[in-house]
Design a protein around this nucleic acid. Structure first.
Lengths: 290, 290
DNA sequence: GTTCATCTCTGCATTATTGCACAGCGATTT
DNA sequence: AAATCGCTGTGCAATAATGCAGAGATGAAC
């Protein structure tokens, strides 16, 4: 039995199609199909139902997936352990962070690259969950209240948030009470940027008219006057025309955490980046308890 | 990273050489060398010291081995689980057993093959340890006192053993006391056929002059008159000229167990073989408590 | 010291794997 | 109903992996 085939199997199981798996694995879809055939032949069991709308795991496929995931976890651990031995200050360093609309770290990154010109910085600005255990990124910068306990977490700072609305909307409604307004909120996965709970805590009847995964969408929606929402004064353009609702009364925000996997603790690039971020975040970001 | 490379790495780590690993894997040694190079390149670490007397694990290699073994265990489990789904009464069935000198099951095997002509029986007669968890065999028949608790064990019978010597030797020594004779014993791995303990229990000063891993060697040695030793009356040729020392006094023997891995419980060939052996062993072998 | 056996390394021919392009199929849209 | 899109299956060419055979090196046996 070819051990590699399990990786292909897992990709198909997750993607639900040959094409999707091929894209993830960065190979041709026919390669995936052929390897899957061989695996089924070697195990003597059909692993997928070939349905018109994709590949669906059979009973045996489900069993295999459970075990293959265990293999994958172990392999990922191996890769992390060996990556942590990497003492070179050159090569790639992959950072995942919120979109620059919500958190702009480019000034810090620019200085970092100047100091370590051999490091190839890959910035992955996504709101989706990025799995550090699977080495999808080396470092994650995230808005979270409580960091996951299986990761090494360092608090970089605090991002204050006020409630903003367009001048026109506030004038029209003629109210300073947030619960009187329709809301536009950013709803992220797994409690990241989960402002919905904050809002409902203020007033349970608050009407939410728009949810988006993008901070920029929230900003643009508020500018266009559809409602109010959380924005950070640190991220407003200088020429903005928005108005804050009683900022002294409602004071929200998120902690900004830098997360790394414990297994990568000794990786030289991760170490220097982390140290650099900590020292620079003190100057750039608000240091304040939430 | 290529998952397969771990299998090659493990083979080299165990064999201590490229050639040995290649033999185990049944590939050319240059393939092993090239895959190992790639793995080291991918992990960015040297895994082996290339010494003149072979390949020796480096510090990183030792770390990797620990983790690779975990991967291998998981893969083996997958293979066992899928093998257990195999409901065909055709194909191969691998049995490991003591050499036929010690235990002759050919009459049973012959009948089994007649009843299941599509099954391809592979008999591996070795005294060495055979790892059922690694699918080195489907069924093991072993002389052991207490079967391993992680395997499914069925007792097939009991092999009585008496102390034999050549007529000439016994006449010359003129003694019926076993401790007066030099001994020839079969010393197996892990307490299998471990008659040494039995002998020393009778008399701690017993002199052991020859140890061998082969029952046949013991028989031939005793025939040639170098000493006495344990042999089974069931396995003596009809025309033998040996003489037993006080058989009524010293009555030893081994239990014969049939061992299978729990994960193979549902494999059709294993099931029918096991049932066949149990029913036939009652007739062929002595059924008696040790 | 010589011979022999064993192991590793390397260039080349063979074999296996992969990517590519095209065809077919079903679902959704126009 | 035709068109379009995304997905899967297949033959063929390009590419990569493998086996093979010979050379060199090392240690053991004579």
């Amino acid at each position: 039995m070819n051990w590699d085939h399990l990786e292909y199997f897992l990709a198909v199981a997750r993607a639900g199609s040959l094409s999707g798996a091929a894209k993830q694995l960065d190979v041709n879809h026919s390669t995936v199909a052929r390897r899957l055939e061989k695996l089924e032949q070697q195990l003597g069991s059909i692993l997928f139902h070939r349905l018109s709308n994709g590949y669906q795991l059979t009973e045996y496929g489900v069993k295999l997936q459970q075990q293959a995931v265990a293999v994958e976890d172990q392999i990922n651990q191996i890769q992390r352990v060996f990556k942590s031995h990497d003492s070179e200050l050159s090569g790639s360093l992959c950072i995942t962070k919120p979109s620059s609309g919500a958190l702009n770290l480019q000034p810090i990154f620019a200085d970092f690259l100047q100091q370590y010109p051999e490091i190839d910085l890959q910035i992955n600005a996504v709101s989706e969950f990025t799995d550090l255990t699977r080495l999808e990124a080396d470092v994650a910068i995230r808005f979270v209240e409580t960091p996951p306990k299986d990761l090494v977490a360092v608090k970089l700072g605090f991002m204050p948030m006020y409630i903003y609305g367009s001048r026109e909307l506030i004038k029209q409604m003629n109210s300073q009470a947030p619960e009187d307004y329709p809301w536009v909120i950013q709803s992220g996965p797994k409690g990241q940027m989960d402002s919905e709970a904050d809002i409902l805590a203020i007033h349970p009847d608050t009407k939410i008219i728009m949810r988006t995964n993008s901070y920029n969408e929230v900003y643009e929606a508020i500018c266009s006057g559809v409602g109010v929402g959380f924005l950070s004064p640190l991220r407003l353009p200088l020429d903005h025309t928005l108005q804050a609702l009683t900022p002294e009364k409602f004071h929200f925000g998120s902690n900004i955490w830098l997360l790394t996997h414990p297994d990568l603790r000794n990786n030289a690039r991760v170490k220097v980046f982390k140290a650099f971020m900590i020292s620079r975040a003190a100057k750039l970001l608000v240091q304040q308890e939430s």
